[in-house]
């Protein structure tokens, strides 16, 4: 996969981890859906902010003091400097506490950790993005990364679905992508989840993906969403559209505590999701024990 885990001498100091996070201020909170909010975080220490770089697909540990840390992919694009964004679904202790926060509040961030989507390897190729629900968050980082360097890539298709219209995240951005001539978009909601003014498709992601016009040659796919969506989308991509599993990338979301290959929580077989992932080729996943 990518080589972003390999430290250069300059990064060497960052390789000593004392688990103290960066001090981040919430610059903006966007309510995406009834239970998902996007937080734009800026570094309190400007030097840290300027030195900070990451790659699409990498994750971090976001924390609220008194509640703990939780792991999310960075949802913003590495091409947009000076801030990071994360989209958080209200689920457990930390995420519930995040949903109570306001602009101006202080949180912690450790990262970036893990490998990344091989954006450089995608150059010159057609890219298909497939997302479901909150699973669009890591995909969004790659989408903007690719769109900000649009000329370096072939055809771009974004296929995104959610249970209902209300559950679609990044609604403004969906419009922006839809409005572009150089991006093909397919937006869908599950049957019964549509509203009277919904202009997109109605149907599950694997179904609409099957009907889409996707070039088989020279195409790679970024696929993130609920396990059930991944399970049924993968055969559509391979059998219907002729992609090879080596060219379909997804992320695993095992529980993590350290993020740096120590705490032993995220292992799948002999791999650490936090170090060897979170981005995996679907062909790789087939080799792993089914513990994710």
């Amino acid at each position: 996969m990518c080589t972003c885990n390999t430290a250069t001498a300059a990064e060497d100091a960052l390789m000593d981890v004392d688990y103290v996070p960066y001090r981040m201020r919430i610059d903006k909170v966007t309510a995406e859906t009834p239970d998902v909010k996007t937080f734009k975080l800026v570094f309190e220490n400007e030097e840290q902010g300027e030195a900070f770089t990451f790659k699409a697909g990498q994750f971090g540990l976001y924390s609220i003091f008194g509640y703990g840390e939780a792991t999310f992919c960075v949802a913003s694009s590495p091409t947009r400097k000076g801030y990071i964004e994360c989209s958080i679904k209200c689920a457990g202790r930390v995420t519930q506490a995040f949903h109570q926060l306001n602009e101006g509040d202080i949180v912690g961030f450790r990262g970036p950790y893990g490998n990344c989507f091989p954006v450089e390897e995608m150059k010159g190729k057609n890219v298909v993005f497939v997302g479901g629900g909150i699973g669009l968050a890591p995909v969004r980082s790659v989408i903007w990364n690719v769109l900000d360097r649009r000329e370096e890539f072939g055809d771009i298709t974004i296929c995104y679905g959610a249970r209902t219209v209300a559950d679609l995240v990044y609604k403004d951005e969906l419009k922006q992508w839809d409005a572009r001539d150089d991006v093909k978009t397919i937006f869908t909601v599950d049957p019964g989840g549509e509203t009277p003014d919904w202009t997109g498709q109605v149907g599950f992601v694997p179904t609409v993906l099957g009907e889409a016009d996707i070039p088989a040659e020279n195409t790679v796919c970024v696929l993130c969403g609920p396990p059930i969506m991944i399970k049924f989308s993968l055969p559509v991509l391979t059998a219907t559209h002729g992609l090879s599993k080596e060219n379909v990338f997804t992320t695993l979301e095992n529980r993590m505590k350290c993020g740096i290959g120590k705490c032993g929580r995220c292992n799948v077989g002999n791999l650490y999701v936090c170090k060897d992932g979170p981005v995996f080729r679907c062909s790789q996943l087939e080799e792993l024990p089914p513990e994710f």
Binding site: Y19, S63, F65, K257, K262, C263, G264
Partner: peptide, 24 residues
């Protein structure tokens, strides 16, 4: 064995982020 957990513990004002042994 070296698995660990990271937890926050605090009263309303002060607290600590701690590392504790954990077990698979």
């Amino acid at each position: 064995c070296h698995c660990f957990d990271i937890v926050d513990e605090s009263d309303w004002r002060k607290g600590q982020r701690r590392r504790n042994w954990d077990c698979c």
